[in-house]
Structure formats: C-alpha cells, structure tokens
Computed example of a mutant assay.
Amino acid sequence: MSGYKARLSSIDHILNADIIHLSKLKELSLGGIPDEGGRRALSWKILLGYLPLQRTKWKDILDQKRCQYQNFIREMVVDPSLLSKSKSSPEVEDHPLNPSPDSQWRSFFDDNQILTQIDKDVRRLCPDMMFFQRGTDYPCLQVVGEEGVERLHRRVTTETLSAAAVTRKGLGINKIEASRKSVATEDYKPLPPGSEAHWEVVERILFIYAKLNPGQSYVQGMNEIIGPLYYTFATDPDLGMRQHAEADTFFCFISLMAQARDLFIRTLDKSSSGIGAMMDRLMKNLKHHDTQLFNHLQSQELKPQYYSFRWLTLLLSQEFDMPDLIQVWDTLFSDNGGFGYLIQICTAMIVLQRDTILASDFANNVKLLQRYPPIDVRIIIQKGLKNINFKKKKIS
C-alpha cells in the first residue's frame, strides 16, 4: 500500500471509529488532510470542537445545533420584532431619539451600522474565485421562500458610513501593508428572488454572530476568516452535510473566534493574549531559529507590524489562494491551543525568504513580506513542521 493510500486508510479508520482518537487525528492532519469524500470538512468539525468525540452523539448534536440556528434566523433576520417585544414594555413610547438600549429604533440604527460594514466586506470576499458570487443550492427558505422577507443587503441605508463604523475594535487591517490577494473591481450583485448567492449566506452568518456578541460585534476582517470555513463546508461532497453548511459554519466560526477573539479587541493589543504579544512571540521564535536574519530585520527597523499583523490576525487567509490556505489550516487546527503552529508557519515563511531578505533593502523587504511571493505551500508547511518537531524534542 502506498504512503498516500495508507494515510487515507488511517484517517478513515479514525473518522469511522465509535470514539475519535483526537491526538491521532491531529497528527494525521498536520501537513494537510486528503479531501476526498469530505474528510476535511468532517475533520475540521471535530478539530474545532463542533462534533464530540463520541460518534453516537453526532446526530443529536447536529440536529440540536441546526435547529437552534434556524431559530436565530427567525428571531434576528425574519422577524426581529420578536426580540424587541420580549424586552420592551408596551407602556413605553418608542421613538427615534429614545436612548433606551431596548428601543426598536436604537436596535435599527445599531443593526444598520453593523450591516453596512458586513455588506461592504462580503461583497468582495475572495474575488480571485467565482464561488461566493454563485448561487447556493440550499438557499434559506425562511428568507427566499414564498413568504420571504427583505434581504439583509436591502436593509442597509444609503447614508454615508460614519467614522465610528469602521474604527478598529481590534483589527487594523488597513495599515501600510497590502494584501497579496486581488481586490474585486466591483461589488458582487444579489441574485434574483427565490435564490441567494453564497456571499449573502455569509452575510447572514456574520450578522447573527454580531447580534449574539454585542460586546465585540462584527470587526472588519472576520469575513476573511469565515470565508474558508464556509467554502469548505459548502463544497462538502457529502450532500447531506453540504445542505447544512450555513449552520455548521456558524458554530465552527464561534469556536474559532473563541480562540482568536483577543486578536480582534483593541484594548487587549498589549495583553499576553493580544496581537502585540503574538508578534513578539513570532520575533522571538525567528531569533531562535535564525539569529542573523532576525538581526538583519532589526537593523533595518522592519517591524513585524508592517507585515505579520495581518498574517496573525487573519490566520494567513490573505496570503494564500483558497486551495493552499485550507492545507495550512489543516495544520493550524491540529494545534492544542495558543496558535503555536501559526507562529511556526509564519517563522517558516520568513526564513524561506532569508537569501532575498539579506540581500535587499528596507523598501524591497517590506514589499516582499507584505505581498508574499507565490510558493508551493507544502514547502512552507514542511518547514513549519520541522520547527514544531524541533521544539517538541527540545521540550522533551
């Protein structure tokens, strides 16, 4: 049996067991999960903690979560008045200037501010591929059915977006760094009544997430993280799973954001779990693996904020095309927490460009790292895995 077939057999053995051997699944996921037969989608749901390790519990969990998500759609998208009615007193007169947080007008203004930014971001999601512009085979019937409601993108007012709406709560992606990925020349268009594009589904997921997390709400850049999750589940070869891609993406996104949320909160930038600490960890790791390269970057005053800010906060989603990115995420999701593998992958990206960096000036190095050159992503992953294995051996 070839090495590849043996790998497939091992993963199938784990995924079909009554009790999932999590550590073995993580080990086999390092470097990439074979995607035939929906192995990746299923593995991600396990690795992100959406599905329990006991197979017998899967059906009940999935039924429960998917039903719960349908209720979220009904309460927050189809008929949001259900929430306001449950909160507000019928004796209190509501009006646009009512300062009460329970005011329906206040809720309308807040929703519009959130939707304006979400709508803007999802209409340009992954412009290098046609997927998000296409229609889903499983549109939400509560929205597009015979008694459908006004689409979220139609609820956005045409008023000028206020500065507060785009102020970073934790993710300042619009810094001097530029994305390697292409940018859509024009916004995606909604599909005709009775159908909906994949970007509209993502918009709904992010809106519901923002409503359920008012303290954090939606932060620009979350669209880049949820995109690969939804794409993976919405292209699952298992049609039974694919039709529930929206609900499954929502709960896996919650799980992923539970790990990454501190990177999106400005007040935690300098905390031990914030983006500042993550960049410090990256630089310390680079110094450990290649002191000469580290010193060269230091001598040029090429700060990690200029390039690694986006790498770390967006989990490298802007640095690679989708097929390559999901292979990287196979490895990232195999981590035991703390994004240690992410640090190693980012370190490998820098070290693999050492000759060019050592021979270049500040301006060219900034350009190089902000727009990382095309490379076989397997080389980066293998280099990162060597760093991981080296670290494990040193600890042991």
Rank of each mutant, 00 (worst) to 15 (best):
Y69C: 05
K393F: 07
D94E: 14
Q133V: 04
D269L: 05
I326T: 04
Y50H: 11
I118S: 03
S2P: 13
S10N: 11
L206H: 07
N213Y: 06
P193I: 04
E196Y: 04
H95Y: 15
I326V: 09
G145Q: 13
D121R: 07
N223I: 01
F108R: 15
G31Y: 14
S271K: 15
K393V: 10
G194L: 13
F131C: 07
N223A: 04
V219H: 06
L28G: 01
R74G: 02
R261Y: 07
D137I: 05
Q142K: 14
F108T: 07
I395V: 07
I46H: 06
L28V: 07
L97T: 05
P90M: 12
Q298E: 12
H296A: 07
P127I: 01
A247S: 15
D137K: 15
M129L: 12
L30P: 04
L42F: 08
R154P: 00
K59V: 06
R281T: 02
E36P: 09
Q353R: 12
Y50K: 11
A260E: 12
L30H: 04
R40D: 01
Q133F: 02
V351S: 03
Y307F: 14
S195M: 14
K120T: 05
A348L: 04
W58K: 11
L28W: 09
D355C: 03
L212Y: 02
L62T: 09
I20M: 06
